[in-house]
């Protein structure tokens, strides 16, 4: 029973990590007023870039770095098209996802089925050996802890720093921010690039830690769940964490139920984490005032400085 519980908790945290990373990045972009629906594409780009680099060099750190750069590069492409050229953000984001999927499949064709070096789990002497608590809290790889640290830093930045205030201001009213002399576009570029970097990182986690393999479309819609998490968490960092964990837990449970051979259609079980997460988050985000106070009013709206 204890072993089961440990396995459950460890798997939940692991399954939640790519969501948490990608959703944190998307949160930052959306708080600045940019809706980037290309998360799935950026994750896949990160996954293949990370996998290929780690495979060629044998160094996982380089792989992680490459994933970060790949995500950022795609995000910047999105920024040029949707911010500078002011194309519709929704359409551009969708195109980015399609592009990311196709491009990663193309690059990854030669890597299917090859094992890659895996991101090592941390082993902290003593701490990691504590029963139950050890493996659950101290037994993960570095990216898991990084995802918590980044979420915490982002939450703190929004709440307590001037930088965070400027970012929220740009997302709430870009015209007012411009009138006060803030450089709306550079701030949005930075936010989008940050979102891309984290999506890339989320991809690297998928292909170097979660299931250390490359398979086409291996993110399986997690990018979309991350986008949904941001909305349903009503743009509050803490609820991203809850949502991601909830998704992770359902993911594990559905696998477990499948393994037990319960007579439920497997398609339904696979869909369960996605459906469950959405339902629960919809329930907690029904308060309209909450949405108004946290939803960036400029979300998806192009900005043009009036001269």
């Amino acid at each position: 029973m204890t072993e089961l519980l440990v396995a459950f908790l460890v798997s939940t945290v692991a399954a939640a990590t790519p969501l948490l990373l990608a959703a944190t990045g998307e949160l930052v972009a959306e708080k600045a007023g940019v809706l980037n629906l290309g998360v799935e594409g950026m994750m896949l780009a990160g996954a293949i870039a990370g996998f290929a680099t780690a495979n060629e060099t044998g160094v996982t750190t380089l792989g992680v770095l490459a994933a970060l750069l790949a995500g950022t590069a795609l995000a910047l492409l999105f920024a040029v098209v949707s911010l500078t050229l002011q194309a519709n953000q929704t359409a551009t984001g969708l195109a980015l996802t399609i592009f990311g999927r196709g491009f990663s499949a193309l690059l990854g064709a030669g890597y299917v089925g090859i094992p890659a070096p895996t991101l090592p789990k941390l082993h902290i002497p003593l701490l990691s050996d504590i029963p139950i608590l050890g493996p659950v809290v101290f037994g993960h790889d570095i990216l898991v802890y990084l995802s918590f640290a980044i979420l915490g830093a982002v939450a703190w930045c929004f709440r307590s720093t001037h930088l965070g205030l400027i970012l929220r201001a740009v997302g709430d009213s870009h015209d007012a921010a411009h009138a006060l002399g803030y450089a709306v576009l550079p701030i949005r570029y930075a936010a989008v690039a940050f979102g891309g970097a984290l999506a890339g990182l989320a991809g690297a986690y998928m292909s170097l830690a979660y299931t250390p393999l490359w398979a086409q479309d291996m993110t399986a819609g997690r990018g979309w769940v991350a986008v949904a998490l941001v909305t349903f968490a009503a743009w509050r960092p803490f609820w991203l964490l809850i949502g991601a964990w909830f998704f992770g837990a359902l993911m594990y449970l559905s696998l477990y139920v499948q393994a037990l051979g319960v007579a439920v259609p497997s398609a339904l079980l696979s869909a369960l984490p996605y459906i469950g997460t959405v339902v629960v988050l919809v329930l907690i985000s029904r308060d309209r005032r909450l949405i108004r106070l946290h939803r960036p009013a400029m979300l998806g709206r192009p900005f043009q400085a009036r001269a």
Binding site: R168, A169, D172, S173, A176, L180, H294, R295, A297
Partner: peptide
């Protein structure tokens, strides 16, 4: 005239 304020802040 049309205030340049941030409503959510």
């Amino acid at each position: 005239q049309h205030f340049s304020l941030f409503e959510a802040l």
